[in-house]
Deep mutational scan, measured.
Amino acid sequence: NSLAEAKVLANRELDKYGVSDYYKNLINNAKTVEGVKALIDEILA
């Protein structure tokens, strides 16, 4: 998966839960796919 794909999928996942734009910005600023995954795990914990 590319970083861009990971960000799109992460933001879709956040949308399902009604997560605020603050967290979407964190996702969009992530530098690695692993970073995106770690943020998602933390946000949805």
Rank of each mutant, 00 (worst) to 15 (best):
N1G: 09
N1W: 15
N1S: 11
N1V: 14
N1R: 12
N1Y: 15
S2Y: 09
S2D: 13
S2G: 11
L3S: 01
L3G: 00
L3T: 02
A4P: 04
A4L: 08
A4F: 10
A4C: 06
A4Y: 11
E5V: 13
E5G: 06
E5D: 10
E5W: 14
E5F: 12
A6R: 03
A6G: 02
A6F: 09
A6L: 13
K7D: 01
K7H: 02
V8K: 14
V8C: 06
V8W: 14
V8M: 15
L9R: 12
L9W: 15
L9M: 13
A10V: 02
N11L: 15
N11K: 11
N11W: 15
N11S: 10
N11H: 14
R12H: 06
R12L: 13
R12Q: 13
E13P: 01
E13F: 15
E13R: 10
E13N: 05
L14N: 02
L14A: 15
L14V: 05
D15W: 08
D15K: 10
K16C: 04
K16L: 08
K16S: 05
K16A: 08
Y17A: 09
Y17R: 10
G18T: 06
G18A: 06
V19S: 05
V19E: 04
V19G: 10
S20I: 05
S20T: 10
S20R: 07
D21V: 11
D21P: 13
Y22L: 09
Y22M: 08
Y22E: 08
Y23F: 11
Y23I: 03
Y23M: 06
N25E: 13
N25Y: 13
L26A: 07
L26R: 09
L26S: 03
L26N: 02
I27V: 08
I27K: 00
I27A: 01
I27T: 01
I27M: 03
I27G: 00
N28G: 05
N28C: 05
N28M: 12
N28D: 09
N28T: 07
N28K: 08
N29Y: 04
N29H: 09
N29R: 09
A30M: 11
T32E: 02
T32G: 02
T32Y: 02
V33E: 04
V33H: 05
E34Q: 09
E34P: 04
E34L: 08
E34T: 06
E34N: 05
G35R: 13
G35S: 11
G35F: 10
V36I: 11
V36L: 12
K37E: 06
K37P: 00
K37I: 10
K37F: 15
A38R: 12
A38H: 07
A38D: 07
L39E: 00
L39K: 02
L39G: 01
L39Y: 04
I40P: 00
I40L: 15
I40N: 01
I40Q: 06
D41A: 14
D41I: 15
E42Y: 15
E42I: 13
E42P: 03
I43L: 07
I43F: 12
I43S: 02
L44K: 08
L44N: 04
L44V: 09
A45C: 09
A45E: 07
A45M: 12
A45W: 14
